[in-house]
Computed example of a mutant assay.
Amino acid sequence: MRRAAAGFTLLELLLATALLAAALALAFATVRAAGATIERGEALAARNERMRAVSMFLRQRIGGAQGMVFELDSATGQARRFQGDARRMRFVSDLPDYLGRGGPHLHDLTVTDASLQVDFRMVMGGQTVAEPRARPPEPLADGLRRVEFAYRGPGKDGMPGEWRAEWEDVQALPLQVRVRIADAAGPWPELVVGLPIAASYGVGSGR
């Protein structure tokens, strides 16, 4: 007489189910951790690329400041070649070809509540020209926590002077401009830009 084949006991089935559930949970946690790592890596890469692009734009545009007159002060009659404070900076530099026809344009860099933007206006004969199709301000970066401009002219004995939050000598260009930016992830690398052509326009002290 043949004996019936022995099956699994209820305890064995419960144990196998528990082991399977643990293995699935471990696999899910591993996949989720890998996904989070990829997302963090992509976010870091995107942030680094944004910092690189914005810094390159600012370095090229500020470093290429031409010292051209873009307007006359209505109160004093002084010719304005450079104007800047902690949240706004204005100067003339060539417009990049990829943004238009090129040529000297007033660059108006402005800090809003959470962004940095630039406005372009063509300059001719010492004043800005109203264009038929004026472009709106271009956003350079948004989602920012802090943006600060500072300026430095010559100090005593030919040494660089102190950094100042306002450039008062509108007829001259500063020797250097400093830009500090921070977003939710922290501060960006500090950007210090030299203005090679500053000496040609009677470098001021900013005082």
Rank of each mutant, 00 (worst) to 15 (best):
V54K: 10
T30H: 13
L44I: 04
V54L: 11
A22M: 14
A25D: 12
R61M: 08
M51D: 02
A36Q: 15
A33Q: 00
A27D: 14
R40P: 06
A65N: 05
L26H: 06
N48E: 12
S55F: 03
R61A: 15
R52V: 08
G67H: 03
Q66W: 02
E49P: 01
G35Y: 05
M68W: 11
Q60T: 07
A22Q: 15
A27V: 08
G64W: 03
A34S: 13
Q66G: 09
Q60D: 10
T37V: 05
F57N: 07
V54Y: 06
A23W: 04
R59C: 02
T30R: 14
A27E: 15
A53K: 07
I62K: 06
R61S: 15
R61I: 09
L58M: 09
V31E: 11
A22S: 15
A45N: 07
Q60P: 00
M68V: 08
L58S: 02
G63S: 09
L58R: 06
L24M: 13
A36Y: 05
L24S: 12
F57Q: 01
F28Q: 04
E49L: 13
N48W: 08
G67Y: 04
I62A: 03
F28K: 00
M56E: 09
R47S: 10
A36S: 10
T37A: 15
A46S: 07
A36N: 02
A43G: 00
R59A: 13
E49R: 12
A43H: 00
I62N: 10
A21E: 07
A21L: 11
R50F: 05
A46P: 01
S55Y: 03
L24A: 14
M68L: 14
A36G: 02
Q66T: 12
M51F: 07
L58T: 11
A29S: 14
A43V: 08
A27W: 08
V31F: 09
G67K: 06
A45V: 01
R32Y: 07
L26S: 15
G35K: 03
A34E: 12
A46T: 12
L44A: 14
E49K: 02
A22C: 11
A33L: 02
L24C: 10
M56T: 11
A43N: 06
Q66C: 03
N48F: 05
R52K: 04
E49D: 13
A36C: 03
M68C: 04
I62S: 08
S55G: 08
A27Q: 13
E39L: 14
A23V: 10
L44Y: 00
A22K: 03
M51V: 11
T37N: 05
L58D: 04
G41C: 09
I38L: 14
A45M: 04
I38R: 10
